[in-house]
Simulated assay, not measured.
Amino acid sequence: MSQPITVTVDLGSRAYPILVGHNLLPTLGQRLMAYIKQPRAFILTDETVAKLHLRALEESLNTAQITPHVMTVPPGESTKNWTQLGAVLDWLLGAGAGRDDILIAFGGGVIGDLTGLAASLMKRGMSLVQVPTTLLAQVDSSVGGKTAVNAAQGKNLIGAFHQPKLVLADTALLKTLPERERLAGYAEVVKYGLIDDPDFFDWLENQGRAVVDLEPAAIAEAVAKSCQAKARVVAQDEREGGVRALLNLGHTFGHAVEAQNQYRSSVLHGEAVALGMVLALNYSVRIGLTDKAQADRAEKLLVAAGMTTKLAAMPGGPYDAPGLTEAMKQDKKVRAGRVPLILARGIGQSFIHPNADLSDVQSFLAEELSKS
């Protein structure tokens, strides 16, 4: 077997490993033997991933004499909905799946969220294994147990916390990702540097192109470092009662963009987060928390990778400040016209600003929309 980098999410008796390495998928069947109660596993994937990688996954399970049961769904954010969740649960129940069975999420963040929520609901909780196939999922959404589907009113409003038993991040799977998908994942990598790791941000200023180009040493370092950062935060605050909210840097603004775009594929989640982080830093400048040079440095790193950092230039528009602010009101933590935002005092100095005034945020967004 390949010898992966192992990162542990320390949740006491529910601790689990994240395995990071190249060409790990062929080892999955043998690794699952430590978790299965009967020789079968249920796999949820999307049509794109199935065409590229499902055969390799099935071969790995068959080699370990584990029978795969597979359901495929359409790719894209629009799949992450209540109707599709019901179809997945009907499939599992019809196939006789039980709490002792394993459900494998084999895909990007959409599949991970949908599968995780289905696992949490299935007979009040069946075992979950995450096998993320995108950079974004490997460094973010597959780790930490947050699962959800979208509603018409906003993103991730119907969900639960359900930790996996194992996360297997095979960096070889990233070779089939389009560059746009790689960049979307890279935004989440940059996020960890902006939150509380200025040394990692410095490293990305030098190695960011190598990460995006999937140079083996660079991508392994970036994925492992990102997973270590997220695992550290999740271990402190599993259910987002405090410090875990820092992981939402860029997400409140980004989710508003996604919502006003109706979750269409013209804006990927990571693209929205990249823009959202720039907006968060620019808003931090606006209210006197940091200087413009710090915000410009973060924006420069994202622009160098080829990402859109201007709200007016974002695909899927036109956007408007009242509509974006209305979408932000759907945030689960909004109280009395005020929303908690993750802002920053500088690179690696993010913090929770609990009571941002949405009327001021709306004025800020109007100004951002006027920038070319």
Rank of each mutant, 00 (worst) to 15 (best):
A137E: 12
A137W: 13
Q138P: 01
Q138W: 08
V139G: 03
D140C: 07
S141Q: 04
S141N: 06
S142Y: 14
V143E: 01
G144H: 04
K146S: 12
N150R: 09
A151N: 14
A152C: 12
A152Q: 13
K155R: 12
N156P: 12
L157Y: 07
L157N: 09
L157M: 11
I158L: 15
G159Q: 05
F161Q: 07
F161T: 11
H162S: 07
H162I: 09
K165R: 15
L166V: 10
L166W: 02
V167T: 06
L168P: 07
D170F: 03
D170L: 10
T171C: 08
T171Q: 03
L173E: 12
L174G: 01
L174W: 00
L174Q: 02
L174T: 06
K175I: 11
T176E: 03
T176G: 03
L177R: 05
E179A: 13
R182I: 01
G185H: 03
Y186D: 07
Y186A: 11
A187V: 11
A187S: 15
E188C: 10
V189E: 04
Y192N: 07
G193D: 04
I195R: 01
D199M: 14
F201L: 02
L204A: 12
L204N: 04
Q207R: 12
A210L: 12
A210P: 04
V211A: 02
V212Q: 03
V212S: 02
D213P: 04
D213W: 00
L214K: 10
L214E: 00
E215F: 07
E215I: 07
P216M: 00
P216S: 06
A218Y: 00
A220V: 15
A220Q: 15
